[in-house]
Design a protein around this nucleic acid. Structure first.
Lengths: 364, 364
DNA sequence: GGAACTACTGCAAACGTTAGCATGCGTAAA
DNA sequence: TTTACGCATGCTAACGTTTGCAGTAGTTCC
């Protein structure tokens, strides 16, 4: 049915081994043979069977990505960055959506674990234990969550809050509300820590907790009334989607932004420019975040497989020193485990935040 | 390193064949043996190696999805629906983003072709020839594009235009502009056909072509000035993102919506509710579209592999009639090729469209 | 009581590739 | 001229499954 290495071998009058070598280590095969094989490959349109390659090599050339909600523009952009970078290195990306559901998330982890070389996990809700089981079999990079002994990459969430506080403070606001995200969200916890730090650093400020909500527009819509009923003059929202929901509800209730309330989001997703007023937000480029995470992942993967590959050419020759070196590299690589990368963030001021009005908001 | 069927077999004191059968055809193995094997599977946490399964069965339990832009909420929602449905049937989904680039799209088609059981192609820009090469090796379902001999699923784009025209007509508009999408977009071509039909059906109407633009917010932003300069009082945009861009630019130029211009989008994506004014749009639920496309795909896949499977149990017994039946089903299934499914659409009227003003727009 | 079935399970081949080892040839060094 | 070495290539054994075939019981029917 489909073309195998054998077909190519027949046409080029060589053995399958040679065909394999031409594709994986061209330099070891004689130039004449090489071009003959390549011609046959070209002519037949041969593409090696990935399943067979995976079976023998143990590597799938596939990365897994689990996000809580693909429709959230944050994760869509993240996925885009990841896919792009992965493709450049010949990797495919299977993405899965946990729908914010922890049970589903675990099932996805289990189900994808075996079939990918590495797992990129974004905004994970699961606990430590569920991950450590997978750790020996798969490389893992956490995005937007830090965990002991696991590589991760995220934005500096404390700095996020600090930046927004400074911005709102400069505009005269002293009563700042916070609408939080899911309870088991690491980002939310970090941001609350940030609020706590800001509270210490700015004695004149009051930080008002408006509770938790789902990280969606609907969540924000539902929370906006708490904001109106509070003493606050400005609000920081768990993410931009929540902020958009808040804006929508405020508009519905005829409350002016930024005149009556200043509203700030987090993440700086693309919709910030779509809404009116445009939304002040802070964050890193999600595509860049995805790209960096993928690069880290690819490094981890090659580092894991390299010891074998390098041992073939050189270490085989220097018989004396090779064994010790190999033994060392086969240990759980403590030197590289648990790297925590934090990307610098950027504040983008738009129309939804403005100077404090003289008189506080009061319904007509 | 990892647990194989052999390990399970050892523990349960059976052969690997039996382990395999317990998992793939439990009814043929004795209840006692079965539970013994299942206990071992459970205890060891055995998961069959997918690469090995794929190698022998030729099926990967993976679906491919190619979209022009994952960040577009339309495709994000579509991907979500597809992934969800696929997961329910044990399939993973690898998604790839062509970035609206036709060369990249071809490369993705080539690269994914071998490694998936089926390819879901959304808003494809490529030509027929590039697809027909792949056709024998992979199942293909087209989304938002129809092509002779290939299964497809889309919304009725002519009806989309007709519905919007009726809506705007009922509001009094007679000069209706259209901002189009990419030149090689099938959807755009269909919509222009729809405009043509509406022109015939409504002699009193004038349809104004505002040209083509990229299907993004930036594209809409850039096109809005053409709208203002035109005779039109209402505009239909290629998609919601373009409409959002138009709204943004109109706001910047202090043009009121819907007072001065009515603006309608297409697709009814989630941002329609986020912008202000909220955006009138028409379309089908993208998640549902994705789900339906996936179901069609799964059917195609099982239908392709079924003939072999069913021939094992029954056809082997009824030796007389079986051969003819098998021969029939091994033919290129002309009966099922080229099904073109069109999902019913829905108009959602929001705040961006309103009754025609007495006086046309004029800058102060 | 023997024959024919049925139900269950094991054996072994096959899927397409990679990689260690072996082979053969030519060439350089002794 | 002989020995040795290196280079290019082929042979073959894996990798972990699935599946047709065969074999071994136990059971039923004549």
């Amino acid at each position: 049915m489909s073309i195998t290495a054998q077909d190519v071998a027949n046409m080029a009058e060589v053995s399958v081994s040679t065909v394999s070598r031409v594709l994986s280590a061209p330099e070891v095969v004689a130039p004449g043979t090489r071009s003959r094989v390549l011609a046959a490959v070209e002519k037949l349109g041969y593409q090696p069977n990935r399943s067979a390659q995976s079976l023998i090599s143990g590597r799938t050339s596939t990365l897994g990505l689990i996000v809580p909600d693909m429709q959230n523009p944050y994760f869509a952009a993240l996925a885009k960055g990841i896919q792009k970078r992965a493709w450049e290195s010949g990797y495919l990306v299977v993405v899965a959506d946990s729908d914010e559901d922890i049970a589903r998330e675990k099932a996805l982890l289990q189900g994808m674990n075996q079939q990918v070389d590495g797992l990129l996990l974004s905004s994970l809700r699961s606990d430590m234990e569920d991950l450590t089981d997978l750790l020996p079999s798969t490389e893992i990079v956490l995005i937007n969550r830090e965990m002991r002994g696991i590589d991760s990459i995220s934005q500096d969430n404390i700095e996020v809050i600090r930046m927004l506080t400074r911005h709102l403070g400069a505009l005269g606001h002293r009563q700042i509300a916070y609408i939080g995200g899911p309870k088991n969200s690491w980002s939310d916890a970090q941001r609350r820590r940030g609020l706590e730090e800001c509270r210490q650093e700015n004695p004149g400020f009051e930080f008002i907790d408006l509770g938790a909500t789902s990280p969606t527009q609907a969540g924000g819509y539902a929370s906006a009334d708490f904001l109106i009923a509070s003493e606050a003059t400005a609000v920081i929202c768990f993410n931009d989607l929540v902020a958009v929901g808040v804006l929508e509800r405020l508009r519905a209730r005829k409350v002016a932004v930024p005149e009556d309330f200043s509203v700030a989001g987090i993440d700086n997703v693309s919709v910030c420019n779509a809404v009116s007023p445009t939304l002040t937000s802070v964050g890193v480029s999600q595509q860049r975040l995805g790209r960096t995470a993928t690069e880290l992942m690819l490094q981890k993967i090659t580092r894991r497989t390299l010891p074998r590959a390098s041992g073939r050419t050189k270490a085989a020759a220097e018989k004396g020193s090779a064994p010790t070196r190999n033994r060392a590299s086969s240990m759980p690589d403590t030197s590289t485990a648990g790297n925590e990368l934090e990307l610098p963030i950027e504040l983008v001021v738009r129309d939804s935040t403005g100077p404090l009005k003289a008189a506080p908001y009061a319904p007509d």
